[in-house]
């Protein structure tokens, strides 16, 4: 019987308990252990902490003070945040318009592909599975030139020209659409693999029982597999959202030079340094603004994210 993936196994719990008991006797080792762990926390958080402090400092203050100390009195300012939000606002909207549909689509397509190649079992599926999985490891440089050619030939903006007259529609959405399609296509391999591993853990007998109950393959997906996929959808959606939100390369290649009106937040953040604002405080504030959605997702669903990367 398949159940949603459980946390640490009972064995590991008992092992941890036993180890913990043994270790309590050696207090000194314990203290050293926590000291090391704490130092490592410092190591991982230092760049973020220094960045956060800097983002609240005036140019004058960060030029003179120690980077990781908080700003003092007149050195404190919110100006960098105001600038960062102003400069990145459009990018945030674009990234959201891009990441949400691309995430949902790539997860959905990965799920049905994995169902068709895992739960429905047929003889010569391995080569196709291999092609899906190998797609994860492709260096994107190998497809950049064709991608730029493709979107030079397929002019989404004119093809969908009827849409741009509608309310709430803007012409630069065409570029975002191109990016969505691209991200969906390159996201399918990883979502496929995640779902495939999950579906392999399903009990065969359960699927067979459904067949004998008279359920068609569509009904089995709709009534059995899909409802049971919820935990894996959480993992996949979170993982894909961070990946797509964080991407820079495809946006650089597919969007018109400089990103234009369709630039996602990563492109906008990168432009912050070269453009108007040279100051580190604004750049740091910008980095946090751009990272905010993924940080929120990560803090709320860190467990699922860990599961996504571990598989």
């Amino acid at each position: 019987m398949s159940s949603p993936p459980a946390g640490p196994t009972p064995e590991s719990n008992t092992r941890r308990e036993r180890l913990a008991r043994a270790a309590r006797n050696a207090d000194r080792t314990r203290i050293a252990l926590y000291a090391v762990l704490g130092a490592l926390v410092g190591f991982y958080l230092a760049p973020l902490e220094a960045g956060l402090m800097t983002a609240f400092k005036t140019t004058d203050a960060f030029n003179r003070s120690v980077p990781f100390l908080p700003p003092i009195a007149e050195g404190f300012t919110l100006e960098p945040w105001r600038v960062a939000f102003r400069e990145l606002w459009n990018g945030l909207i674009n990234s959201l318009l891009l990441a949400v549909p691309a995430t949902v689509l790539s997860a959905g397509l990965g799920s049905i592909a994995a169902y068709g190649l895992t739960t429905i079992d047929w003889k010569y599926q391995m080569p196709i599975v291999a092609l899906f999985v190998a797609g994860i490891f492709i260096p994107y440089q190998a497809v950049l030139v064709p991608l730029s050619r493709l979107f030079a030939i397929v002019d989404t903006q004119s093809l969908l020209s009827v849409l741009w007259g509608l309310p709430l529609m803007e012409e630069h959405y065409a570029s975002i659409l191109n990016l969505i399609v691209t991200h969906v296509a390159y996201g399918i391999p990883i979502t496929f693999l995640l779902f495939r591993a999950y579906y392999q853990s399903f009990s065969n007998e359960m699927i067979e029982a459904a067949k004998l109950d008279g359920a068609s393959v569509f009904s089995i997906y709709r009534n059995i597999v899909l409802p049971l996929s919820k935990p894996m959808f959480a993992v996949t959606l979170i993982y894909q959202f961070t990946q797509i939100w964080n991407d820079l390369l495809f946006a650089l290649v597919i969007l018109p030079s400089g990103g234009g009106a369709a630039a996602p937040v990563t492109v906008a953040l990168n432009a912050l340094s070269g453009g108007i604002v040279q100051s580190f405080n604004t750049q740091m504030a910008g980095a946090f603004v751009a990272a905010l959605p993924t940080l929120i997702v990560y803090v709320l669903f860190g467990e699922q994210f860990a599961k996504g990367v571990a598989s």
Partner: peptide, 27 residues
């Protein structure tokens, strides 16, 4: 079984295949 599985994996496969393997070939 094979025929019934096609609607599930073929569309994602074509999309992915075109963008990944098609593009590499083109490249």
């Amino acid at each position: 079984d094979f025929v019934q599985s096609i609607p599930f994996w073929l569309p994602p496969f074509l999309l992915m295949g075109f963008f990944v393997y098609g593009a590499i070939g083109w490249n």
